[in-house]
């Protein structure tokens, strides 16, 4: 006879309206999670690129048959020369096989590649704290014909800048999506207030405090946001899984960059939880605002 539902003095939200709102919240959560995931991943990749290439320089030896010494010999000479420079930790010439492997994505693995003149490369590890002056290094390498040193700074800076810009856009999308979801909840709370004006007025005149009536709307918004948020979470996890499979993303390498697995789970669960709290607060704000207009 008396049920726990009886604590809900307003009718449960209309089935059609609820389904629509749950779908909107689910899609918003999905978008927010993808934006958040993209932002965190881009930030992590930028950091990795920055850290991975800090202290790694490359000396390129131009392939040129007219030089007095063959390319491999000049690469060995360059490595020998660099090893004596203060701040250089290691300098190793790459074998022809290594260079061919590096170029294979562009040149393929045909036998004809054997005939192509390949440049020589020297992998240089420098002391990241006290690297040698690049101008000094260039001066010393001047005695090796066709040698040129690259500290990668130029393109690393570009990539990091691009990653940071994409990260900022992703965060902006996340914030916008959150704002739209809150507006949707506020609109739904207002619509419910309008639909149930008769019941609200009755509760008001028989002595229900504004907070008591507002709690009815909060409870409904919380239930809708939790359902929508969890559906969005499942949808986002499925999307990322399909994207990783379809585009062959190296998730096993990318995921550890984002932090320990528990922190990823915590962040993923936090989004629907934040959506639920935001929805509750938005419904409370909208209903209290309307109720204060009553005498």
């Amino acid at each position: 006879m008396s049920t726990r539902d009886a604590d809900v003095a307003l009718p449960r939200a209309e089935a059609g309206g609820t389904a629509l709102l749950v779908s909107i919240i689910a899609l918003m959560t999905w978008l927010a999670l993808l934006a958040l995931g993209a932002s965190v991943a881009l930030g992590a990749i930028a950091r990795e690129r920055q850290a991975g290439l800090a202290g790694r320089w490359t000396v390129e030896i131009a392939a040129d048959a007219t030089r007095s010494k063959p390319t491999e010999q000049r690469a060995r000479d360059a490595a020998q020369l660099l090893r004596g420079v203060p701040g250089v930790v290691r300098a190793e010439p790459l074998s022809r096989e290594d260079i061919r492997r590096l170029l294979s994505p562009w040149l393929g693995n045909d036998a004809a590649v054997e005939e192509l003149p390949l440049p020589g490369l020297v992998d240089v590890v420098v002391d990241a704290q006290r690297p040698p002056a690049i101008a000094e290094l260039r001066k010393r390498l001047a005695e090796i014909p066709g040698a040129n040193v690259d500290d990668h700074r130029g393109w690393v800076v570009e990539i990091v800048r691009l990653a940071r810009a994409a990260e900022a856009v992703a965060i902006a999308v996340f914030v916008m999506v959150g704002a739209i979801a809150i507006l949707a909840i506020v609109a739904a709370a207002r619509a419910r207030l309008a639909i149930h004006a008769h019941e609200v007025e009755l509760l008001h005149v028989i002595g229900a405090a504004d907070r008591w009536i507002a709690r009815q709307f909060q409870a409904s918004a919380l239930a809708v946001a939790l359902r929508g948020g969890l559906s969005g979470l499942i949808l986002a996890a499925t999307t990322i899984g399909f994207a990783a499979w379809g585009f062959q993303l190296p998730l096993d390498r990318l995921l550890p960059l984002l932090g320990p697995s528990w922190s990823i789970i915590a962040v993923a669960l936090a989004v629907p939880a934040v959506a639920a709290v935001a929805a509750t607060l938005a419904a409370r704000w909208a209903s209290m605002r309307a109720l204060r207009r009553l005498p």
Partner: peptide, 18 residues
């Protein structure tokens, strides 16, 4: 002004719940 979504019992109980 009875609330149609509540039973007779719950309509009567409303002031006590408040």
């Amino acid at each position: 002004r009875l609330l149609d979504h509540l039973t007779v019992f719950d309509n009567v109980a409303l002031p006590l719940r408040l």
